[in-house]
């Protein structure tokens, strides 16, 4: 348990002290959302209607950018091999690394979303729901994404490939994330079921992600 805690603390410290990593994702998120009205035109009614979708999709893209970081540096400098030999099972190591990614990317992006909602004229009533669904849904992004990060460690053009592998896996999260927000605005009865499904997807990915990522890491470290 102490080893797990130490590893988590190390990964969080690395993410914070490296700098740039969190800021880049946030900056990318801001830019994508700010570019869209330039492309779509400044019609506030249109923007407020599509705001939840834009915020979710831009969040997926921003999180994708930083996914490859989950294992890459530790794989390159050999510390991942030490971790594989250590007392923690590799599944737990993968889970902790994905958790650190969620804490340093998923949460900041979700907290930035309402601010970007202002740019898109999002209904004030939707802000709480937006942040709630994103906090509940983003663990799936980190944990499913860790599978892609582990699979592409030794691939050429890893970054682009990662997007191709991982984006289809995010479809259920995206659909229920947006269903939850729009139902909270239109039909409150449907909000709780959508949120529960979103939670179930995140919990499921919490199980599947580390197992598959650890399998992929073992194959590459033999």
């Amino acid at each position: 348990m102490r080893a797990a805690w130490t590893l988590l603390k190390r990964d969080l410290q690395l993410a914070v002290r490296e700098g740039g990593a969190i800021g880049t994702a946030l900056g990318f998120y801001l830019l994508v959302v700010a570019m869209l009205p330039l492309g779509l035109g400044p019609d506030l009614n249109l923007l407020s209607r599509i705001a939840p979708g834009i915020l979710w999709i831009a969040l997926l893209l921003a999180a994708l950018l930083s996914l490859s970081r989950i294992f890459e540096t530790d794989f390159e400098d050999g510390s991942l091999e030490l971790m594989a030999l250590g007392e923690l099972p590799l599944e737990l190591v993968a889970a902790i690394k994905a958790l650190a990614h969620w804490l340093t990317t998923g949460i900041p992006l979700a907290l930035l979303a309402p601010l970007l909602g202002i740019l898109l004229n999002l209904d004030i009533g939707a802000y709480g729901v937006l942040v709630l669904t994103m906090l509940v849904g983003t663990p799936a992004i980190s944990f499913l994404g860790s599978i892609g990060a582990a699979l592409t460690l030794r691939a050429r053009r890893g970054g682009l490939l990662l997007a191709l592998l991982v984006l289809p896996l995010y479809v259920p999260t995206l659909i229920y994330g947006i269903t939850a927000i729009s139902s909270a605005l239109v039909a409150p009865d449907a909000f709780v079921p959508s949120l529960l499904i979103l939670t179930a997807l995140s919990l499921g990915s919490l199980v599947l992600g580390p197992i598959a990522a650890a399998a992929a890491l073992r194959i590459q470290m033999q």
Binding site: I147, V171, L201, I219
Partner: peptide
């Protein structure tokens, strides 16, 4: 190596595919 990694991806895909199908 490519064979084994692709196999992991295929198994992940087949687990998630029903959820994608149901959600859509």
């Amino acid at each position: 190596l490519a064979a084994k990694l692709t196999a992991v991806l295929a198994l992940v895909g087949v687990i998630i595919l029903p959820f994608i199908k149901i959600s859509v």
